[in-house]
């Protein structure tokens, strides 16, 4: 039972990760492959905050504060990486962000304060289902509201046609950075929740493969659909767990199965499950 609850909690974390990457990749159209890096920044800053301050506050408050701290730190990392990288386009941006994601991981490996390659241990278990899904809710609300306003529309317009957006008086670089920074910040929150759920984090948790997994979630659900990201994250987790029933060998080959799944998806439904569409909830209150 505990195991299943833990999975549901993880699922919430994946949802936040997927939605935050979807803001960058799906809504803004900037292909980022460094999301695991921001996740790591969030996890390490959040964990450091609770462990090193050691304030005698109630657990939920501590978690809340460390979520805020990790949001800010990951957003700052987003600014530092976004400002140079977002001048690039397409494949070049993907490679640059991939590089920066790895740089973050390497920096962490070389930081003895947080355990270096041995990992960060003895993080108090503060994440629970309620607070995880509280943050999932905050993420959904923030993104939904954002997308209904002029700032969200500006972000989408960059995906649609960057030159036209610039010609319509939209400062495209500013909005690209904005999407990147907000996405990074929420990945940071997912990191804190993750650290306080696992109680142990190591640089191995945040390898490049995870950026690819998050990408897989949003492509599965549909680039540009937050509903899709939620479903995609859930499916990703369920699929990984379902494969365990077929024994260790099958579970070891899950990469092949993910790849096959992607190929199948591209053949049958290249826009992902939801395409760019959303469920009613996301559209409520918006008159087209």
């Amino acid at each position: 039972m505990d195991y299943i609850l833990h999975l549901i909690l993880l699922c919430g974390i994946y949802m936040i990760l997927a939605m935050s990457l979807n803001l960058i990749n799906g809504k803004c159209g900037q292909f980022s492959l460094g999301h695991a890096g921001f996740w790591a920044v969030g996890a390490y800053t959040g964990a450091s905050f609770t462990v090193f301050t050691g304030w005698p506050l109630p657990g939920f408050l501590m978690l809340f504060l460390s979520c805020i701290v990790s949001f800010l730190c990951a957003a700052l990392a987003g600014v530092l990486i976004g400002v140079p990288c977002l001048r690039l386009r397409g494949d070049y941006l993907a490679i640059a962000t991939l590089g920066f994601g790895e740089i973050i991981r390497i920096i962490i490996i070389n930081m003895d304060v947080v355990g270096g390659p041995r990992g960060f241990t003895d993080i108090p278990k503060l994440s629970n289902l309620f607070w995880t899904y509280f943050w999932v809710g905050i993420t959904i609300l923030t993104f939904r509201n954002l997308m209904h306003g002029t700032h969200g529309r500006a972000i989408i317009s960059i995906r649609e046609d960057e030159i036209a957006a610039e010609s319509m008086g939209i400062a495209t670089f500013k909005y690209k950075t904005l999407a990147f920074v907000i996405g990074a910040g929420f990945a940071g929150i997912a990191g804190t929740l993750f650290a306080h759920a696992q109680q142990f984090i190591s640089p191995q948790n945040f390898i490049f493969m995870w950026s690819a997994y998050i990408l897989l979630m949003i492509i599965l659900g549909g680039l540009g659909s937050f509903t899709g990201s939620i479903i995609g994250a859930t499916l990703f987790l369920l699929l990984g767990e379902a494969l365990r029933f077929f024994g260790e060998t099958v579970a070891e080959y899950r990469m092949i199965i993910y790849a096959l799944l992607l190929v199948l998806l591209m053949l049958l439904r290249p826009q992902g499950l939801f395409g760019k569409g959303e469920l009613k909830f996301f559209w409520k209150g918006s008159k087209t």
């Binding site: 529309r153 317009s157 649609e160 036209a164």
Partner: peptide, 8 residues
């Protein structure tokens, strides 16, 4: 023409 094609 450079409209935002997928927007209303």
């Amino acid at each position: 023409i450079r409209l935002f094609k997928d927007l209303s």
